[in-house]
Structure formats: C-alpha cells, structure tokens
Simulated scan of single mutants.
Amino acid sequence: MTVAEAVVSRRSVRAFLDTPVDAAVLRRVLETAQRAPSGGNVQPWNAVVLAGDPLARLQAAIAETVAARGERTMEYDIYPKGLDGAYEERRVEVGEKMYEALGIARDDKRGRFAQFARNFRAFGAPVVMLVHTPRYMGPPQWSDIGMWLQTVMLLLRDEGLDSCPQESWAMYTRQIRETVSIPEDHVFFCGLAIGHGDPAAPVNRFAVPRAPLSEVVRFEGF
C-alpha cells in the first residue's frame, strides 16, 4: 500500500468485526510511529493499549454511567465554544450523513443516544489505545500528538487494519482513571479504536465530504 492509498482509504470506522488483532502487529506499528515528527523531538505522546479483560472492565465502567445519564468529567473542550461558519457546518453535515446511513431519524432521540453509547464500546473494536500527555504541554505539543496519531492510523492501514480516533472518551475521564493507571499530572486526550472494519456496515460506507482545496489553501508566487 502506498502512502497515498493509506491516506485515501483511512476513515473513522464505526463498526468493527470481532476478529482479534495480533499484538506483534500493534508493536510493529507503534515502533515505526515513533518516527513521527515533534517539535524539538519532545515526543509528548503517551498511551495505554487495552484488549481483552482490561478493555472489558473499562467499557463496563463507562457503560453504567452512560446508561444512567451520569456525570461527564471533561478535561478539555472537544470543540471550541465559538465554533461557527464553515467549521460548524462541516461538523453538523458529517453527523447527519452518519445518522442517515444508520437510518436514524433526526427526531429519534433514543436511536441517537444508542449510537452515542456505542462510542464507549469502541464500536466493537477489540483494541482501544488511550492517549494522554503531561498537563503542562501546550498547543504545539498537542499538534505533535495529532501528527503521531495520524502516523499510527496510516501504518494501521498498511497492516490491513482500521481505526477510529475518539475524543468522546474524554467525557468520562473519572471512570477511565478509576480503571486504568494514568498519571494525575497528565491530561487524558482521546481513545483510538483499532481492529478490522466491517465492510458491510452502512456506517462505514457513506461518503465523508471534504472541503475543496480552494476553500482552505491559498497559493502565492506560483
């Protein structure tokens, strides 16, 4: 697989098969991903990779809170409070396309909540990677973590695997910290669901729109 093929074929998969993932493959991916760039070679990413019983315990802990509509314990805003214009339009559009693919109507609150709850089962993925970083790290280091995550996701594609980056896990950091050892002086950032995507699932097949290049990039001096 070329880099371009990995980029084009990568998508946020929201329905996984129960096919196990080889730990050796994950180690190979993560070892290679250590070559991802970071300012000053700081490498601010830290992660815990869960499968089997540890993952099941975490999912059970969060599922109980989600079902009870319990307290959310955010450590940061997933979206800025002032998100508007084209940025907000893109966010809303992809959400509506997803629900349309799932056959969940806009006024079906129960169906939409059930889909929201599937986030915390990692959409059936057998592996979840939890990402965290020291609290004093700033926006440049968070950008570095994003470059590392993209590198991981593209390398997973090269291995025939799929993924879904999930900031939604940050809604329940208390349950995560009670179940998984994450340093208190670290901010929990996100989860990454990893596995084999279900190619037949409609939620994995709808077209995800992207802004045209002319809308986001300006060329000068060419």
Rank of each mutant, 00 (worst) to 15 (best):
S9C: 05
G124H: 03
G195S: 01
V92I: 14
E31S: 15
T2Y: 10
L17A: 03
P140I: 09
A51S: 13
H186S: 01
H186E: 01
F222R: 15
A170F: 10
L50N: 01
R57N: 04
R205C: 10
R110H: 02
L149C: 13
R177N: 00
V127H: 11
F116C: 06
A60V: 09
W45S: 06
R110P: 08
G52L: 00
Y172L: 03
S38C: 14
K109Y: 11
V128M: 01
V29P: 09
R218Q: 13
A193C: 09
F222K: 13
I78G: 01
V13W: 02
M1L: 15
D158K: 08
Q175W: 05
F116M: 05
V128H: 04
I62A: 01
V42G: 15
L17N: 01
A63E: 10
M153E: 06
S143P: 08
K109A: 11
I62M: 03
A56I: 00
A125F: 08
R112W: 00
D144Y: 06
H186I: 07
A67G: 14
L50K: 04
V92E: 07
F16Q: 03
R72N: 04
A15E: 00
F188R: 13
G103L: 09
P126A: 09
A211S: 10
G197T: 13
C164T: 11
P37I: 15
R157P: 06
G95R: 07
E100G: 12
I104L: 04
A60R: 07
V216W: 08
G197K: 06
I145S: 06
P165T: 07
V208T: 09
G103R: 11
S9I: 12
L192D: 01
P209V: 07
